[in-house]
Design a protein around this nucleic acid. Structure first.
Lengths: 336, 336
DNA sequence: GATGGACTATACAACGTTGCAGTACTTAAG
DNA sequence: CTTAAGTACTGCAACGTTGTATAGTCCATC
């Protein structure tokens, strides 16, 4: 129904291939011919059929982004930034939500996705290690620290260092009993492991003992999990005087519990989060946190994919790991 | 490079079309043949090429979702829910961010999008009325109240009634000087107009005067806008004793300003928001708000699109407008 | 023991595009 | 004046899939 090259060609009185050449900016087309074709294109409102183009060329101009869930502000922000970065390359982004389920992530990676995509940006939650190996050769960029050595690029901040920075901030305030909220046992919960490691490092540096009862496990990384973990901490014999939460949602949940029990923040308990989501900038109290350079993460992820997709020599290089800066932002929840 | 029907056919010793029939679940295939083909499919790891399928059938299995911005929790939530609902129909969702720019929205609607999509779910911000007419016949579902009468379905809550409910809640608490934050002049800011109308209705019902100085305009619907508008209200001669904010982000921003000036919420000023984003359930104080039935909005939007895309008789019916329920949730910010 | 119907399988064309090969003409170089 | 190189354009095949048309086989029915 919509016009094709054929229709444009007929109207302009040239061959199909010439129209194709004009559309693709082929140089050896006489100006007069080009103008005539352009006019026909305008007149008919011709738009290239990308299905056909993809069938021929193998490229779809679509990349997939797989995140655990869009409802989580941090992932929503990253997703938004990636869509913007992709747009600058005139790529479209197709979004998958894995809900952190191993099965879903596996399907995704196994290439069971029914849609042809040129590349994949993936923020794995349930999967780690070799399970992440893409069956088909689709280029993949992983968001998160490198935990295996397959053929995929990585973009991440230094989680361990960042967690240590956050914890160090608490020790430097003179807090002695510092809890961690966000511990996860699963071997694939790499991010949680790294942040826990950083937390322990900073405590040890400060000459503080490691107390297992202060390392609170959680099911997920949502506000409710943080609120619940904080409640458990407060019900224990010796409550903490500071908490490092592995993300801002946990922190906001924890603060909610503290405030609702009338415990002043940061008066009695100081709280640091991780991610610098917008909520933390307007919450009461405002939230001290680790701010990853999210726009840069998004840009780098897209750039890396572009390199792999390009025809240049860089296309087949060894997997790279790119570090993105982070910084500690001190706000009210630690007395900033 | 990846195997096609041809390869499977060769391996199974049947014709290409028979493999196609097996893949598509055509009934008249001998069990033995079917088994042989299935085995070949497994062995080769065959996956249908949707580009080719689309070229043949015209259907891509992809729908587009256009939202102003994913960073906004409400839109992120809606997006997540729509992706889930679409998944149940094995559709994939392609996401566009318009940033509320008229130009971007126009392009989108004009079909300039380079990718073939079966349908569009669109949450317009800058555009209204006839400008929304889709050039090509792609089915479209609009999120938001019906503001024109072109061929598109609508899914929305009753904004005016909901805004009146929120405001009525404040009057019922005995508040007399109730401000509104979120007014927008632009004729296309339909949602803002409707919520303002509801606000005025409720005030009038309660026998309260309409005071233009209490109707605060904003540039956007973000926390910063709410914080800034609240500051202006507090700096005025006669500050309000309650505020109805046109969304939760504005409300959270407003609360931030109040708290940072030491004004008790809801003690001196009560605040109601709109959208019921998760932040409001854990903020300090927790936020009273209007909760639209977001899962239902998402489900209905996808269902309506499915109807239009179906071959059934409903495919070409008159445009429909579906109302979704909302309810007032009373929390701490109004003394709940 | 013909006739018709259900079943199984196949061949071919077409969807809209682009890569490749090729033609015809023009200009520059030897 | 021949040859080579460049320019402007065209035609054909192919990407992987599915709809239509068709043909053969087998069985039940009249």
């Amino acid at each position: 129904m919509p016009p094709g090259l054929k229709d444009v060609a007929a109207r302009a009185g040239v061959s199909i291939k010439t129209v194709s050449n004009v559309v693709n900016g082929y140089v050896h087309v006489a100006p007069a011919t080009r103008a005539r074709v352009q006019a026909a294109i305008e007149a008919l409102g011709y738009v290239p059929n990308i299905a056909a183009r993809q069938l021929r060329s193998g490229r779809s101009g679509v990349i997939a982004l797989a995140v655990p869930e869009l409802q989580s502000p941090y992932f929503a922000e990253i997703a938004g930034l990636i869509v913007q970065a992709a747009e600058r390359r005139s790529w479209t982004v197709l979004i998958d939500q894995t809900d952190g389920q191993a099965e879903r992530e596996r399907n995704l990676v196994a290439g069971l996705r029914r849609h042809a995509i040129d590349g994949l940006i993936f923020s794995p939650l349930a999967l780690a290690g070799e399970e992440l190996a893409l069956r088909d050769g689709t280029p993949m960029v992983l968001l998160g620290e490198r935990v295996w050595h397959g053929p995929a690029d990585h973009v991440a901040i230094d989680n361990t260092a960042a967690a240590a920075d956050a914890t160090r901030h608490l020790t430097s305030l003179g807090r002695r009993r510092i809890a961690a909220i966000g511990v996860q046992d699963r071997p694939s919960a790499v991010t949680a492991h790294q942040r826990l490691a950083g937390y322990r490092t900073a405590l040890t540096e400060a000459g503080l003992p490691l107390d297992p009862t202060l390392e609170m496990p959680v099911d997920g990384f949502h506000r409710a999990d943080g609120a619940e973990a904080m409640a458990r901490l407060l019900d224990a014999e010796e409550p903490p005087d500071a908490v490092f939460c592995f993300n801002d949602l946990l922190a906001l949940g924890a603060i909610r519990t503290l405030v609702s029990r009338g415990i002043p923040v940061p008066g009695r308990v100081a709280v640091v989060g991780f991610d610098d989501i917008e909520d933390g900038r307007f919450s009461t109290p405002t939230l001290s946190t680790i701010a990853p350079d999210a726009p840069r993460i998004a840009q780098l992820a897209v750039d890396l994919l572009a390199e792999r997709l390009g025809d240049g020599p860089a296309a087949a290089g060894a997997p790279r790991e790119l570090r993105v800066d982070h910084r500690l932002i001190v706000r009210e929840s630690t007395g900033g």
